[in-house]
């Protein structure tokens, strides 16, 4: 089954995925429409700043078993049958934050949502864009990511490709014609690091 795969080394921190995610979870499904909606839809993916201010796209890993599901008091968090997706039933959710206390990645937020009962704050998290997938589309965050930090593919394929990249990077003749896996990120973060170091001199 295809899944969203995160390549943080490629993230440039543009946060377009957050905008696309919120739009995909709006009623109108358009950016302008989403901005005018009440409640305004919340993003399920979160680009945080790493230690060198590099982008870090953080989304639900849909763990199995999922700590949030085990910690959920009213039993609102469940795994959708056949899709490996951890979902929240907004009718059952009581906004107690037990899931946020359990989540090792900090990807759960609390907000009103167009799909939740009006006025009710609920736990919102990545749903793998089940709605879009049912229409044959890829998840919104992937569609919008121009940096290639988010891809939608078979995990086995991605693993294979990555294994090859790793092998190539450490092979004997790698030193002769090495291309870093993520030239842009490496360069940018090195420049940031040096700038910080020079500033502090």
């Amino acid at each position: 089954m295809k899944q969203v795969i995160v390549h943080p080394e490629r993230c440039v921190g543009c946060m377009q995925c957050m905008t696309a995610c919120a739009t995909a979870h709006s009623t109108s499904k358009t950016l302008i429409g989403a901005l005018l909606e009440e409640p305004r839809p919340a993003p399920r993916i979160h680009v945080g700043a790493g230690l060198e201010d590099e982008g870090f796209p953080n989304r639900c890993r849909h763990c199995d078993p999922a700590p949030c599901q085990l910690g959920c008091l009213p039993g609102a968090i469940y795994r959708a049958k056949g899709s490996n997706t951890v979902m929240v039933d907004y009718d059952l959710c009581i906004n107690c934050a037990s899931c946020a206390m359990a989540c090792p990645y900090g990807v759960i937020r609390f907000a009103e949502d167009p799909k939740a009962p009006p006025g009710k704050t609920v736990a919102v998290k990545c749903d793998n864009c089940v709605e879009r997938q049912a229409q044959g589309k890829v998840p919104a965050c992937v569609e919008t990511c121009f940096a290639g930090a988010l891809t939608f593919e078979e995990p086995s394929e991605a693993m294979k490709r990555r294994t090859g990249e790793v092998a190539a990077s450490i092979s004997l003749d790698a030193a002769a014609h090495r291309v870093p896996l993520s030239a842009s990120w490496d360069l940018q973060s090195e420049m940031k690091r040096r700038q910080k170091a020079l500033d502090q001199r």
Binding site: M1, Q3, V4, I5, V6, P8, F56, R59, R61, H62, C63, D64, N84, T85, P104, Y105, N128, P155, A158, M159, R162, T163, V166
Partner: peptide, 14 residues
């Protein structure tokens, strides 16, 4: 590390 597992990907099943 980001994927929280030995896999080099963020999968839905780790």
């Amino acid at each position: 590390a980001a994927a929280g597992s030995s896999a080099a990907v963020t999968t839905a099943t780790e």
